[in-house]
Amino acid sequence: MKLDKKIATRQSYGEMLKDLGKENDNIIVLDADLSTATKTEIFAKEYPNRFFDMGISEQDMMSTAAGFATTGKIPYASTFAVFAAGRAYDQIRNSICYPNLNVKICATHAGVTVGEDGATHQMLEDIAMMRVLPNLKVFSPSDDVETRFIIKEISKINGPCYVRLARLATPVIYDKNEKFEIGKAKQIGKGEDATIFATGVCVAEALKAKELLEKRGIFVRVVDIHTIKPIDKETIIKCAKETKKIITIEDHSIYGGLGGAVCEVLSEEYPVKVMRLGVKDTFGKSGKSTELMKYFKIDAEAILELF
């Protein structure tokens, strides 16, 4: 598997939105003064009458999107993850999820891989916060191809969705003809020494670790969990049964994210030891994305240290 071509999932999002806009007139896009960073500007340039810049008011943006959804529009609402899931949590909860409205919250700049902006802009709790909301489906795609699939597929789901996207350009993992299914994890490899459950920008890191481990005669499989909720219990349990070691890795707090979700499934269905890699109950900091992944031990090297 070559991992040399890189693209940020926010870029894939912006480009896919433009394609979707052509197919479906009901798709509208809202942003909160970050369209150049979230890449919704790509849609805005093509469809200015279906793009709404709400200014720096994320709470207003979420509830406005809810109002749009009551009239049959399919709003995609975007800002940084810290402002979407964090600042507008109550609006997402009460105006979108409780009434089960058809709003697609696409949050970019998740995790420490935001980089230089530092802790205030590095959302590490969003998977945890979004996962507990009834009616909401939660996605965390790992590369360009998977992001395009999810952005398109959620337009066909009648209900609220949260998609976690990254600022950092990361390797393209899948062939453009790869088939995906909502709620179904992608298993890469069949190694039985360990399963590495990974999501978002950490999937490529897990794949790098997989190759390096093979050179040492250790054979692992990587499971890319792009749908955090509903989670693919079946694959998680199957892998726990088939492999000796279970590892999770994510650019998110070790509390309540992918690691938490995997532990919930396994503790109820097939109790085994789980090693969680993630940000350990601390805030992020400024630095280069790659430096931060190393510092917070959410890169390939951190996985190797577990063997």
Binding site: Q59, D60, M61, M62, S63, T64, A65, A66, G67, F68, A69, T70, T71, K73, P75, D90, Q91, R93, N94, S95, Y98, P99
Partner: peptide, 17 residues
């Protein structure tokens, strides 16, 4: 026409409509 309860959110929803 709209689920409400948490104050301050209704006007935004009305704008969307």
């Amino acid at each position: 026409d709209m689920t409400t309860g948490s104050l301050g959110q209704g006007l935004s929803a009305a704008n969307g409509m």
